[in-house]
Design a protein around this nucleic acid. Sequence first.
RNA 1: GCCCCGGUGGUGUAGUCGGCCAAGCAUUCCGGCCUCUCAAGCCGGAGAUCGCGGGUUCAAAUCCCGCCCGGGGCACCA
Length: 507
Amino acid sequence: MIEEEKATKTRIGLPELPNASKGKVITRFAPAPTGALHLGQILRAAYLSWYYARRYDGKFILRIEDTDPRRIRLIYYDWIQEDLRSLGLDWDELVCESDHFEIYYELTYKLFENGKAYVCLCSSEEFKRNVARRKPCEHREKMDTVDYWENMLQCKYREGEAIVRLKTNLELENPALIDPPLLRIIETVPHPRTGYNYKIYPLYNYACIIEDHYISKITHVIRAKEHETNRVIQNFIADAFNWKLNINYIEYGMVTFEGAPAHKRHIRSALRSKEISGWEDSSLVTIRALIRRGIHPDAIKMLAEHVGMTKNDIKDMPLVTLYSFNSKVLSKIAKRIFFVEDPIVLKVYVEDDLFLARNPWIPGNEAAGYREYRLRPLTVDGKKVLNLYISREDVDLLRRAQDSKSPIRLKGLMNCRIVNIDLMNNSIYAEQLSLKPIRGVEIIHWVPAGDLAIKAFVETPSGIKEGYVEFLAQQLKNGEYVQMERYGFGRIIQNEGEVIFIAFAHK
RNA sequence: GCCCCGGUGGUGUAGUCGGCCAAGCAUUCCGGCCUCUCAAGCCGGAGAUCGCGGGUUCAAAUCCCGCCCGGGGCACCA
């Protein structure tokens, strides 16, 4: 359906997948349950795998790579699914590698029968020395029979003592390709799903190629280019089985984000040292942190399509592009509210006895209705005065208005003139002008002092900001997107009635 | 050290079996319009000789050679 003329010149959207046809595409996203999903994983691996499966009416498999019981945690199995769901990336099939130990073992027999694997008793140091000298170790020839593999299965060796290696070629230029490890023993750490039932665990390359080719018949693997060497190893494994591989590999560059830890191990250590509050901490670019802050799933998808799947590494990508996409999405759906940070009282001397303030919940969307308030001035020393909270941030602006004698617009309420700024007493005095908006004047937001102010805490990157939100903000539900006018976008984290907690997303 | 892979405006990306490209789009920044938000929207502008040097060619971001820079792998992690 794409206009071919244009397609050749400037591509719109993501490119076609190589060797892909309708209904024939099977992709997978295969995270390890070692933490919450982060943006980098989603942008290319998860989103693209999902996207192409849907684009070609294919199948998208979520595979949990849980073959290292030392690192995985049960809770992350759920988180991975929650995170994916929160983005609307639905899968057709869920697979856990830990369901397939028997298959891995069966297949391993074949490898021994084919003379393609051996049990190695060298320490890793010894092994490396041998590889460096391109010399075979004594086990390479001696232990290539099924007997040794059976010994392993019967726990005749201890953890770290024996390992199954693929027999490749000692003359290979890249030492990483020589006799890669296939299965190892982990006997003391129980697996969260299988306990101590299995003590021989496959390593990444072994499990991966068996899953991709033998079990799931994956047609397109989209993964980071750090796997390029692994692809070669996986090809060797396939050769050892005499498999004819039918997998297209797309390997993209690494992405890291400005100001956010790039690796899970950094997050884990920050977690242990309490530097961050959890995987939802606003300083992280985990999916749950972003969603919590008010980054809309659509914005994340837009970023994914924007970034595409080039092999370029992206180091410390600024998040402004994400924020820009988010603003576009949220401007149509976020409820507007006034949040006054660090309040100071504005006393407006007025003439009328009743004021009606009115601002739309969502500008341009009549159906969303209005935030309306009836305000009655107090009478002090025979004068009528309206007390409003405004943000201390705006004091400079008011001072300039006072100097230039220009009016100030209190949005949705009235125009006023600043007559005195008395910071000693934390008060600013103004007098009422007309009610109808006038063009070209500075507009500020406000919250009525008194019963119509609700305490609010806004969680920003530079700490928790205290202030007031307007009374009707009480209607907001947890999880709702908001735009605090002139302040920024965010999301309601917790509405406690008397006090509301809001996470700040961005300006 | 060895082995891979990249290098297009501040940022991300399109284009890469040569010409339609002194390079498109998005973002950023600036200006204007619109608007009762300094948001969104609309219009316009700034900003890259396509890592560097050489070569091939009438013609190179696109081909060849050399160099530099960046990233990754060389785990009984994934």
